[in-house]
Write a protein that binds this DNA or RNA. Structure first.
Length: 494
RNA sequence: GCGCUUGUAGUAUAGUGGUAAUAUGCUGGCUUCCCAAGCCAGCGUCCCGGGUUCAAUUCCCGGCAAGCGCACCA
């Protein structure tokens, strides 16, 4: 089968089986960049979140939740108001829009063009007679394109929908610090919606205007960053790292080395940051991505965000969109807390090191996941067509249905009733069981294959006599016969 | 945001200036039915707005949306 055909089959499955629908609202034609999840997609997302929450609790992280709307001041302090507004030239004739600073850098490489004011940029185009690359109409004014969505609260107070959850977590710092009782690092995470007014959203849920973030934060002292106890527990782990120097040498594949090697060779500067790389990789592995489809790619200094000292993307190799970032791991230094301390006139200096008389503003290390991208990449990388049979080889605990129960035939009351009993038994144990009687037995297996259901249980004539059923495995299609009393044990250990 | 292409049942597509079709799907029935079997019956579609026309799903204009390319993606 050709790859394009496989991708077409996959894209239609997303809709057919209720994973992802949109752009929403579909009945009104849709608004670009907004998608909904159907029952299967939402169930799967919830399973991903449960797995993350369980893992993070085991690593000592606690969850917080903050408002999605914050006043202007917050975004002034965070730097988003300044940095999230792109200066653009817009052609008066054909509406072509170009990013002003990049355009000038490209046309006038000899001029100093970094950090120019709007006025200076306007003077430059006038001086050199620069104009629209399409129709050559001269550019005049620099306009702002704000990537943040603005709203007003109450009687006209300007506020913005958060472009990331992270900043809202940082605003809790003094509360968290009290709560943590001097146990550092402070480890928290926040899951929630973020909003960005993308110029042209594309690629399904990979670039939405309203999307989920799952952002993990460590507030940590400078001393502890370099000498971090938990690092010693994980530094033997082998991680596929692609640093930016390798990328500059046109090397496209990651170097599989231990974190210890990476730190010792200076690829990673800080033990605590290496721990974050580990944690990001660990969580991605737990989801069940094939090992060869994961890599960690370092940003070049030019690529890095305004707040970052080091940044790595955890990427998944997809057929439709190439390497897709599902997680960004950033060393945000003390940038955020310094700025918020300054703008709010709070003192965020605290003693964190061995010398309790010396105070410092905490450093922040961040592991930022995009759950929507996780859902897409998980579905795509586990989607297979084997001899015309479509199957999602999802990690069983992430599947929308954990089991499905079928009566072999439905016109035989005793079989139907026993099947219902088995289904109810599973539900009583809060196992996500799905009951289906429609169509042939083969068709029912195929329906569940498309949803990634790991186990299908069929009740047949023999079941009436011997109280046993067949459990059919999604991946091997093999069936084994077990007693009804043994079902729970049998489907538990995968 | 610009350019090109596109928009027809839930999904995938065909087709037409006189309101439409194929496959699949879905619902019900029959068939003792373990990997998309068969038979019968039924359900469901022309993105939105305006224009031209006796008549528009079809032609024209605008909008919205999608794919690709450019730009954008702190």
């Amino acid at each position: 089968m050709k790859i394009e055909d496989k991708i077409d089959a996959f894209n239609s499955l997303l809709r057919r089986r209720g994973f992802i629908w949109g752009p929403s609202p579909e009945i009104y034609g849709g608004l670009a960049g907004f998608y909904s999840y159907g029952p299967a997609g939402k169930a799967m997302k919830n399973n991903v979140l449960s797995l993350f929450r369980r893992e993070l609790r085991a690593y000592g992280f606690y969850e917080v939740e903050c408002p999605e709307i914050m006043p202007k001041k917050v975004w002034e302090a965070s730097g988003h108001l300044e940095r999230f507004i792109d200066p653009v030239f817009r052609c008066k004739k054909c509406d072509t829009m170009v990013r002003a600073d990049k355009f000038l850098q490209d046309r006038l490489p000899d001029e100093l063009s970094d950090g120019l004011s709007f006025e200076e940029m306007e003077n430059l185009v006038k001086k050199h007679g620069l104009g629209c690359p399409k129709c050559n109409t001269s550019f005049e004014r620099v306009e702002k394109y704000n990537l943040m969505l603005q709203t007003s609260v109450g009687s006209g107070v300007i506020a913005y929908l958060r472009p990331e959850t992270a900043t809202t977590t940082y605003l809790l710092f003094n509360r968290l610090n009290q709560d943590a009782r001097r146990q550092y690092p402070i480890k928290v995470f926040q899951y929630g919606k973020a909003f960005r007014n993308e110029i042209s959203p594309r690629q399904l849920v990979l670039r939405m205007r309203a999307f989920d973030q799952f952002e993990i934060q460590l507030f940590i002292g400078k001393e502890q960053e370099l000498n971090y106890e938990e690092y010693n527990e994980i530094n033997e782990n082998i991680i596929p790292l692609l640093d930016w120097k390798s990328q500059e040498s046109k090397i496209g594949f990651p170097n599989k080395i231990s974190l210890k090697e990476a730190v010792d060779n200076g690829i990673l500067k800080k033990q605590a940051f290496a721990y974050c790389i580990y944690l990001g990789y660990h969580l991605a592995s737990k989801l069940g991505f094939p090992e060869e489809k994961i890599r960690l790619r370092q940003h070049s200094p030019q690529e890095m965000a305004h707040y970052a000292d080091d940044a790595w993307d955890l990427e998944i190799n997809t057929e439709q969109f190439g390497w897709v970032e599902i997680c960004g791991i950033h060393d945000r230094t003390d940038y955020d807390l310094k700025r918020h301390g300054e703008y709010s006139k709070q003192n965020f200096e605290i003693p964190m090191g061995t010398d309790s008389s010396s105070k410092e503003v905490p450093q922040i290390l961040e592991i930022a996941f995009g759950p929507d991208r996780i859902i897409y990449t998980l579905l795509e990388t586990t989607f297979n067509i084997i001899d015309e049979r479509i199957v999602l080889n999802l990690n069983p605990i992430l599947a929308p249905n954990y089991v499905a129960v079928f009566p072999l035939v439905r016109n035989k009351k005793s079989i139907l009733n026993l099947a219902k009993d088995v289904h109810k038994l599973l539900l009583q144990h809060r196992i996500t069981s799905f009951f289906d009687t429609a169509g042939s037995i083969g068709k029912r297996y195929r329906r569940q294959d498309e949803l990634g259901t790991p186990y299908c249980i069929t009740i047949d004539y023999d079941s009436l006599d011997d109280n046993s059923v067949t459990i059919r495995d999604r991946d091997t299609m093999e069936q084994k016969r077990v007693l009804i009393s043994e079902i729970l044990n049998s489907i538990d250990n995968k």
